[in-house]
Nucleic acid binder design. Structure first.
Lengths: 243, 243
DNA sequence: CGGCTACTTGAATACTTTCAATCCGCGTGG
DNA sequence: CCACGCGGATTGAAAGTATTCAAGTAGCCG
């Protein structure tokens, strides 16, 4: 199931940056394949040299790092439209691994001509820079959550942020959304042990704030949850580059 | 004490990216002043709109975020050569605050023409993108430290990373370096209470790994410390853009 | 029906924080 | 010169939070 860039489903979403006239052909030329993989597939291994560039077209994935003792820290949740492996392509080495969470499909891009693409399209490069700064902002808030906030707050934050990111992409509305993360993943994002995460989840549910069941997130009281967790929606619309 | 860009002390360091012939005049045109401030000065307040762009020329500073309950999380330590406020300039709003740690001086850059500068110099923009990706990598490792590692490891990591960043800039060598962070700051980077941080510092010193005294960091056994904390030196040489 | 994976729960242990004091170096003003 | 106040550093004890270890339950799929 190959999807040509011209009829890309994602690009219709106004969340993504509209392309300049001369950019689409350049980008389309980069796409070398469309790849479908099952859940729990490792797309990128930490330490890999060179590496391919992917756009997540459909499904969920996550970036993570493994520890010597077998532990894992999830760095970010990846949703449709996210670019994967840019730092590997530009800096030379992958610093983290990426694994699918659901069956997923990717646009496979030739990493080699990317530097050339950036040199020719200054607007696109700036746009990528903005996106990178925005992601740095997300990472900063993750740091705040892990360094200075209690488990309920961390958890509420993860839920609200993920919901919001889905909504921006037109993948959620109302009060529910898909949430294919298992307990283990949530624990590894929030930096908690699974057992303690469980208690915290139970608390959120009993307090009528939010619940995860059956791979679905239900925001029972988004207002109160955002007060508890200090989540403020951020993110620009219309400037997210989609390659 | 104004420093013209042509005779910038920092630029001589091979850690920074050499400029293309036509870039220096464009950059020099951006610099509108040289500013000296005392320690503990807030340069940027979270939430500020627009905002100026600075290059830290001399001294130390840090990026941080305040919590409703009065807590603080330090996101990053800023060293000479670091660019401050790029995300504010490009995205419109400052997401975090910046405060000096020592008396410091800054190059003040006009933020408004920056977008123009980037449009004209594609190489510079790419370089900034690389730098941003590299910083994202640093943020990722900070996340791992806070989410999944013990206090001694976090602390050792902060010490080694900071030492390394100084060394790359030619500001440290051998086994000692300046370290103007107080206990409060170290606690706010590592996500610990000050009291527990103290015990941890004591432990590191008693174990003969490292010690902070008199605003100086002494690496007593860098080898063993890096084993304990899992620090691996990273960072590219020669591609760090200095604006 | 196993065997597997995900999820839950209990109890003991380990780790961190909070609260309350104390100590120390330094600059000020008597 | 010295008492005083101040901010930073340090310590002890008690309270609270989170993890580990050890079972045990539920659902799914061969």
């Amino acid at each position: 199931m190959n999807v040509p860039c011209v009829q890309c489903r994602l690009r219709q979403n106004r969340y993504f940056r509209p392309l300049a006239a001369d950019e689409l052909p350049s980008i389309a030329a980069l796409k070398s394949a469309h790849l479908s993989v099952p859940a729990k597939t490792d797309m990128i291994q930490a330490g890999e040299v060179g590496g391919t560039l992917y756009t997540l077209y459909d499904g969920w994935a996550f970036r993570y790092e493994l520890l010597p003792d077998g532990g894992r820290q999830i760095l970010d949740i990846l949703l449709p439209g996210d670019l994967i492996g840019l730092s590997a392509a530009l800096l030379g080495t992958a610093r983290h691994s990426v694994q699918t969470l659901t069956p997923a499909s990717f646009c496979v891009l030739d990493a080699y001509p990317v530097a050339d693409l950036l040199a020719r399209h200054a607007g696109l490069t700036q746009s990528l820079l903005r996106r990178s700064l925005e992601e740095e902002g997300r990472a900063d808030r993750h740091i705040v959550m892990l360094g200075r906030r209690r488990p309920t707050e961390r958890l509420g934050y993860l839920m609200l942020e993920t919901f919001d990111r889905l909504r921006q992409r037109g993948l959620a509305s109302g009060t529910m959304c898909a949430f294919p993360l298992q307990r283990r993943h949530i624990a590894d994002w929030t930096g908690l042990s699974m057992i303690h995460l469980n208690r915290t989840l139970t608390r959120l549910r009993e307090d009528g704030l939010a619940a995860v069941e059956d791979k679905t997130l239900v925001l029972l009281d988004a207002q109160r949850l955002s007060e508890v967790s200090g989540y403020r929606p951020g993110g620009t619309i219309g400037d997210k580059p989609l390659i």
